[in-house]
């Protein structure tokens, strides 16, 4: 397995570091306060490769708290709101694009 730190980092715009929480698998985002949040709007935004690499390294060091940290694209709206940058991240952030068989 290639460590996330050895992976080539390519970012084309604003990005966040995301992972899944170890104990329950829930989607989480790295914050600027070196912590995790389930709320994308609280995620730390990086724009440069070096910045991204540093945030990822620091996040991936938390092997106990989070699994599979990686850099994901986001879009910043005119109002400053953080939106997922692709369909996969949209689904991770907002949930299924279909209804659950059982209403929540």
């Amino acid at each position: 397995m290639t460590s996330p730190l050895q992976q080539k980092i390519k970012i084309t715009g604003p990005s966040v570091v995301t992972a899944n929480r170890t104990w329950d698998g829930v989607v989480i985002y790295r914050t600027a306060a070196k912590n995790w949040t389930t709320d994308l709007s609280e995620a730390a935004i990086v724009r440069e490769v070096d910045e991204a690499r540093a945030l990822l390294a620091e996040a991936a060091a938390d092997d106990l708290g989070a699994i599979g940290a990686y850099i994901a694209p986001v879009e910043i709206g005119d109002d400053g709101a953080i939106e997922p940058g692709n369909l996969r991240e949209q689904i991770r952030s907002e949930g299924l694009t279909i209804g659950l068989p059982v209403p929540a």
């Binding site: 397995m1 899944n20 170890t22 329950d24 698998g25 829930v26 989607v27 092997d63 699994i67 599979g68 996969r88 689904i91 991770r92 949930g95």
Partner: peptide, 22 residues
């Protein structure tokens, strides 16, 4: 156990990590 070590053990028991959860 690190995730790298545990991953194989959980997989041997049918536990994947998917987009939203295990």
């Amino acid at each position: 156990l690190s995730e790298d070590e545990f991953k194989m053990l959980r997989l041997q028991n049918g536990v994947y990590l998917q987009l939203h959860a295990y």
